[in-house]
Design a protein around this nucleic acid. Structure first.
Length: 468
RNA sequence: GUCCCCUUCGUCUAGUGGUCUAGGACAUCGCCCUCUCACGGCGACAACAGGGAUUCGAAUUCCCUAGGGGACGCCA
């Protein structure tokens, strides 16, 4: 089979995958990994597969599986085919490991965890990396102790080196003496992650693996497993991890939240994706990149090698951009998620006023807050300042006389009034703003009058003038 | 401890030996626009971790140091 490099034109279809373990929510780092793999597949017209690595039965939960599915869906990352549940393939993994034993490429090891602990301590004491010393590697299985269930270990090469041509990190070499004979099958008969990943990636036809660089050293072990099976190794790209705002490892306190937490903070999925995309990937000086554009541009060529931090201010800026772009109907639906009991009439009002709302709201939370001017039944107090009272009275007069209740006409007649009275327009706008909304900060006055409609606008004016 | 990786403005980054007195974006600070707030426009501030070497020339190549990160599980 011909080798296929992600960075260059590629004739055969590429297959990428996202392989989370369902032990928690889909956090921001995982989301970015999924995004990159998805983008890569879409860019080359290949496939993006999803595999749930649930071989750790104790820690895997159904809730986590749901959270991952929902998180990906929310972000708009759609996978091809049915998700593969790794545990369902465990038997197959073990069978293959046994074949390796038969071929002399793997062996049974009867060490106890206690013995291993001692080994590691000794290696450390000698200044070596802590590893298994291979004591059962060539030992006669007939000398096996009674009653100890063995593990299966890979007979890894003792000398030489393992070389990885990483599409992000470049060529990385590790001396085989650094690596030990890793466990393929546990003493309880279940396969380990190392074995399962290799077998599944191979069986699923995965051609490109983009993952966090915390897997970099695992890769060398996995390459050895590929070699033992005689399979072709996929292209690997190890991307740097995302750090918290303080540069330290991502923790629950800052960024290691589920993607749904970003939704709850008021972010739109496209803003989260755009922000994630720019963490460790770039396309010249482009900042605002739609997913469509990203698919067109994304290759592994522009992936960065250094770790980055999540910048909430930038995400907010991006979000405010996508808020402005968002369809008004969609935004209304988001508001309805916050409050299902908005009357039809007020929904119409919101739709009319949405343009002014969305260009001011950085998040959906802010949108909800600002939108309340159109939802609450505000009753203005009667104007006490004589000057303000007069302005409101004059305003009422010209507004009442207006036949066409459009923003343009409203603009004209109120500016006319200001000119006739020789007042700065703010002298008229501020009292009106206050009467209509009870707030100092709102969308433009004409838009508000328009959204409220003539009847409601006049009603609130009358109340403020003590007429009702 | 051992191995591996990383290091450009506060942050995300552009930059692949000369076009760099290092560009953009976010943040910050001014000014302008203006019915408030935003938006927008203009401008300011601000970085090649340090030291050697190669070269006519280095942010870009090599080495060392420092700092940061990751891995070293019968977790994934």
């Amino acid at each position: 089979m011909e080798k296929c490099h992600a960075g260059s034109a590629c004739s055969s279809k590429i297959v990428t995958r996202f392989a989370p373990s369902p032990t928690g929510f889909l956090h921001i780092g995982g989301a970015r990994t999924a995004l990159f793999n998805w983008l890569l597949a879409r860019h080359y017209g290949g496939k993006f597969l999803l595999r749930i690595e649930d071989t750790d039965r104790a820690r895997s939960t159904q809730e986590a599986v749901e959270a991952i599915f929902n998180g990906l869906k929310w972000l708009g990352i759609e996978w091809d085919n049915e998700p593969v549940f790794q545990f369902s393939r465990a038997q197959h993994h073990v069978e293959l490991a046994k074949q390796l034993v038969e071929q002399g490429k793997a062996y049974y090891c009867y060490c106890t965890p206690e013995e291993l602990e001692v080994m590691r301590e000794e290696a450390k004491a000698r200044g070596e990396s802590p590893k298994y010393n291979g004591m059962w590697r060539d030992r006669d299985p007939n000398t096996a102790p009674e009653g100890i269930p063995p593990v299966i270990r890979l007979k890894a090469p003792l000398d030489g080196e393992t070389v990885l041509h990483d599409i992000v990190q470049g060529t990385v070499t590790v001396a085989n003496s650094q690596l030990d004979d890793m466990i393929l099958v546990r003493s309880d008969g279940t396969p380990t992650f190392m074995l399962s990943v290799v077998v599944d990636d191979h069986d699923m036809g995965v051609t490109h693996v983009v993952r966090g660089d915390d897997h970099l050293t695992n890769t060398f072990r996995q390459i050895q497993i590929y070699n033992a099976f005689g399979w072709q190794i996929p292209q690997y790209g190890h991307i740097p991890l995302i750090h918290g705002p303080d540069g330290a490892k991502l923790s629950k306190r800052h960024g290691a939240l589920g993607v749904e937490a970003y939704r709850d903070m008021g972010f739109l999925p496209e803003a989260v994706c755009n922000c994630l995309l720019r963490l460790g990937w770039s396309h010249g000086n482009d900042e605002i990149i739609s997913m469509q554009q990203a698919i067109e541009w994304f290759t592994t060529d522009n992936l960065g090698k250094s770790a980055s931090r999540l910048d909430f201010q930038k995400m907010e800026k991006l979000n405010s951009h996508y808020m402005k772009e968002a369809d008004n109907k969609r935004l209304l639906n988001i508001l309805l998620e916050f409050d299902k009991n908005i009357s039809e009439e007020k929904q119409k009002r919101l739709l009319l006023g949405m343009n002014g709302l969305k260009q001011r709201a950085k998040t959906t939370l802010e949108l909800r807050d600002m939108a309340s001017i159109y939802i609450e039944d505000y009753i203005p107090p009667v104007a006490s300042d004589p000057a303000v009272f007069e302005i409101l009275q004059d305003s009422r007069e010209v507004l009442q006389a207006l036949n066409e209740w459009t923003e343009e006409k409203l603009d004209h007649c109120l500016h006319d009034l200001a000119a006739r009275k020789e007042l700065g327009f703010g002298k008229i706008a501020q009292p009106l703003r206050s009467v209509l909304s009870g707030r100092k900060i709102t969308p433009g006055i004409f838009e508000m009058l328009f959204a409220f409609g003539k009847d409601e606008s006049m009603r609130r004016l009358d109340i403020a003038l003590g007429q009702l």
